[in-house]
């Protein structure tokens, strides 16, 4: 069996995302791959990971095979430490209790800004997207990991609309906008792992996924990419990671 056939695109997305989390952290996870990846980290390397959901859940411990259809459903609370009101769990971000926010993305740009509101001119949109949910709050108030599909139309030089701010226009513009804390930290796709330059705040490729080359990443990106001088290739998913992931999502709700 070749490497590429061992796992699907969304499986490697979940596994590489899970590897970004560290034991003992407090993570605020969105629905889909983020919830799954945070749970995978919790069941593999990070037993002391504390997972928060915007529905008001503190210290989630999601049951295998019973993934919730949103972060506002009762399944999110199973064996959690606490339930709070939604505003109160979001206020934990503002107070600074949360180490890392973790969400999906529809469209991202070179400074890590996310758009989930409008395609086209917001005054007369081609497509009205669902909107921010907790995304804006999370990305405004903590360090972010974003897990998303890698397509040219999703990786654009400048998003049509900043729903959830990354580094805004780069440099110090995020801080200058009134967001002194947090910012984009990692972007994970089925092709590569990205970070951001400390000074310019522009996105750069830190590591290629197994079997992926530079050209493939560049060709699927709508702007010129920088590659880190220590660029490396990520180690492939282990059998243990894949088995645990499939045990958590046997119906492939989030890893189709």
């Amino acid at each position: 069996m070749t490497e590429a056939q061992r796992y699907t695109a969304s499986e490697i997305l979940a596994i590489l995302s899970a590897r970004q989390l560290q034991d003992g952290q407090v993570v605020f996870a969105g629905i889909g791959v983020p919830l799954l990846a945070a749970t995978l980290a919790q069941r593999t390397r990070c037993p002391a990971l504390t997972i928060l959901f915007e529905g008001g859940v503190v210290g989630a411990f999601v049951e295998p095979g019973k993934l919730p259809p949103s972060t506002n459903d009762q399944r999110c609370t199973k064996r959690a430490n606490m339930v709070l009101g939604s505003a109160d769990v979001l206020l934990l971000l503002q107070r600074g209790y949360v180490d890392v926010g973790f969400m999906g993305g529809a469209q991202i740009d070179q400074f890590g800004n996310l758009n989930s509101s409008f395609i086209g001119d917001p005054a007369k949109p081609k497509t009205r997207l669902p909107g921010t949910g907790g995304g804006n709050d999370i990305s405004s108030l903590t360090n972010m990991i974003v897990a998303m599909k890698h397509e040219k139309r999703r990786f654009v030089e400048q998003v049509d609309f900043i729903t959830s701010p990354g580094f805004v226009r780069g440099g110090t513009s995020r801080r200058d906008s009134g967001l002194p804390s947090g910012g984009m930290w990692r972007v994970i796709t089925e092709l590569a792992v990205f970070g951001f330059d400390d000074r310019t705040r522009r996105i750069k490729v830190l590591a290629l996924n197994p079997g992926v080359n530079r050209e493939e990443v560049q060709d699927n990106t709508g702007f010129r990419l920088d590659f880190d001088e220590k660029l490396h290739v990520t180690s492939p998913p282990t059998d243990h990671e894949l088995e645990t992931l499939r045990m958590l999502d046997p119906d492939r709700l989030f890893t189709a």
Binding site: N136, I162, R174
Partner: peptide, 13 residues
């Protein structure tokens, strides 16, 4: 007061 929405285009809307 909040510290969210700043820096985004939501605030412009």
């Amino acid at each position: 007061p909040t510290r969210a929405m700043l820096g985004s285009d939501i605030v412009g809307q």
